[in-house]
């Protein structure tokens, strides 16, 4: 039996990145086997997503796909048709996690921080008021070598106390100074 599978590329691939539409039709998405990480960093200029290991171990490249945390080094863009991708650049500026990380001293060298913030965002979406143990488990895929994690726990718990999601708490979260 002969497969119907086409040898040529299929229909146009498109998805949104931080609210912007990308499409293979206009060349803003390369080969389907391209890593989402490379698309972000090399083609879309979104360098807030970092490469720490290239094997899904460190979480520095973590982004949200349809609100779920993924390691962008292990996602081929060909699988993203119709998805919403959010990298650190697309997180609302009033997300209480951003100011909580600054207040708590949760960022030291900062290379793990964008991925850590997004892991924390995904955690708070699953569990608005997590326990310390839930925080420890929820962030366990994001390695940090500077902080020993303590200040990150504080930041996440503070953000949870400040409001479950961006823009929902009374008065809004204090923004980060630019």
């Amino acid at each position: 039996m002969r497969a119907q599978a086409p040898a040529a590329p299929g229909p146009a691939l498109s998805f949104t990145l931080n609210g912007r539409n990308l499409s293979s039709a206009d060349g803003s998405i390369g080969a389907p086997t391209m890593r989402l990480l490379d698309l972000l960093r090399l083609h879309a200029g979104q360098t807030g997503t970092k490469e720490g290991c290239g094997e899904g171990e460190c979480g520095a490249c973590a982004v949200l796909v349809d609100g779920e945390l993924v390691n962008s080094c292990l996602v081929p863009v060909g699988q993203l048709h119709g998805c919403n991708v959010t990298s650190i650049e697309g997180l609302p500026r009033d997300d209480p996690l951003l100011s909580a990380f600054a207040r708590a001293g949760a960022a030291q060298c900062g290379i793990c921080t964008p991925g850590m913030v997004l892991a924390a965002r995904a955690l708070l979406e699953r569990s608005a008021q997590p326990s310390l143990d839930e925080v420890r488990e929820g962030l366990a895929g994001n390695l940090c070598r500077c902080t020993g994690y303590a200040r990150i726990y504080t930041a996440v718990l503070d953000a949870a106390a400040a409001g479950a999601s961006p823009g929902t708490q009374a008065g809004g979260a204090p923004g980060l100074p630019e």
Binding site: K50, F101, A102, A107, G110, T113, P114, L176, E178
Partner: peptide, 17 residues
């Protein structure tokens, strides 16, 4: 608060890569 925190948290700090 650390002076380098906002740029790092927002992913704006530029590392060599």
């Amino acid at each position: 608060a650390r002076k380098d925190a906002p740029a790092k948290i927002l992913g704006q700090a530029r590392y060599v890569d």
